[in-house]
Design a protein around this nucleic acid. Structure first.
Lengths: 230, 230
DNA sequence: CCGTTGACGAGAGCGGTGCTCTCGTTCGAG
DNA sequence: CTCGAACGAGAGCACCGCTCTCGTCAACGG
């Protein structure tokens, strides 16, 4: 077994088959959702017997974890490309929100896998954290740039590390300049409110209350921008 | 078959067994979650064979629907008893929020069933609507009382029925006095933000960002109260 | 009062699932 | 060239949702 650099033919075909399996799994996910995703059906689609798939993924949950990471990455990439660092903070925030919503509407089952109920005995593995942080990092960068531009209030009171951790602070604007904690908490709140709105829309909790999802979403994200201070 | 009033012995024992099944199912739900809830295991727990359960519930999804409705009712009842109509609006809002969170923390799997990814696809959302509306009605009553007390801005611009439907308006304060649409939209937003925060907390999206969930939640709900105008 | 009917529980069975194990084959590193 | 590791196939286990049949037994109508 070679370590990196030049992959052997065996490693190459292994990577290819792994990709084939994840692609088939992603198609299954988009069609029937995570709960009904069957490893056997995936195996059938790639022309394998179910036991052969276990050479590539030790369990169905590991396969789902792969899809989760890929989903976070796709969503993070969508958020990143939607963010124009030259635009004013509010426009950047709105653009990122719209991009996140567009991705969620285009991939409802993947969104449900990421932000819906966790699957049965599933414990969020550490591997998903970096990918999951990407969209938060985009928001944090907007916040930091706005702070550097001096349009946000700087630290007034003391920080409370129990309320919002050092890691989260590092993402949400960092330490320079010293943002007021209130702003960071509101940014975190806007973040979860964004996904709360999306979850309600996608999971049908707005049925009968909101007709025009596009305009409602714009209103909400605009209100959230004002709340943050953008 | 008698129609209501005096139930026959047969109807009584049927209702008893149905309750036994739902109780066992609720225990299973609390233990292993909705995705892993097995009708056969429920049957075992009540000392039946699996096929016998189908005399009472036509499918596993119908059993889940029963649990969903019961869950919405339990949550709604918790919100209703937490609301003291004599208290000022902000205190009422905070109390209801805390009650909702307390219920969610005490029944995480039930909460996931209600507000996580819809598990059976789109089985029977129609029957669930009245129960699901209860907690929203509580919030709407607070909003209406506050409006009657004259502490909220009255209608300034035109209403936009596509943004927020007539049904939702009827719940969120009604037509007298004519609340400004902005306030109603913000209330709706606060409602989804509340559940967005809870979902993030329960589904682990705050891990590494928020240490003290209690205080963070109070901060968020307080901010939301200010946003609404309470 | 008795016969019919319908509800009921048990059991077998079908097709599906995740996962394990064993068995030939094949391929590539030493 | 050899030998071990990786691989795919297949059988099999335990479980799942759900259907069907069958014997029983209680309630209702004539």
């Amino acid at each position: 077994m070679t370590i990196g650099l030049v992959p052997t033919a065996r490693e190459r075909v292994r990577a290819e088959i792994t990709a084939e399996i994840t692609d088939a799994a992603r198609r299954q996910l988009a069609e029937v959702g995570a709960a009904a995703l069957s490893l056997r059906a995936v195996a059938r689609e790639v022309g394998m017997v179910s036991s052969a798939v276990y050479r590539y993924f030790p369990s169905r949950d590991e396969l789902l974890t792969r899809l989760i990471i890929d989903g976070y990455d796709a969503l993070g990439a969508a958020a990143e490309t939607a963010d124009d660092p030259g635009a004013p903070p509010r426009e950047r925030w709105l653009a990122v929100c719209r991009a996140v919503r567009a991705w969620a509407l285009a991939h409802p089952h993947e969104y449900a896998l990421l932000y819906g109920s966790p699957v049965p005995g599933y414990s969020a593995p550490r591997d998903t954290v970096p990918a999951a942080s990407r969209v938060g990092i985009v928001l944090g960068r907007i916040l930091g740039d706005a702070a550097r531009a001096g349009t946000l209030p700087t630290a007034a009171g003391e920080r409370d590390p129990a309320l919002i951790s050092d890691d989260a602070v590092a993402i949400l604007g960092g330490e320079h300049p010293a943002l007021d904690e209130t702003v960071r908490v509101r940014a975190l709140m806007a973040w979860s409110a964004l996904f709360g709105t999306l979850s309600f829309e996608l999971f049908g909790h707005f049925v009968g209350s909101v007709e025009d999802g596009d305009r409602y979403f714009d209103r909400v994200t605009t209100d959230l921008a004002v709340l943050i201070g953008f």
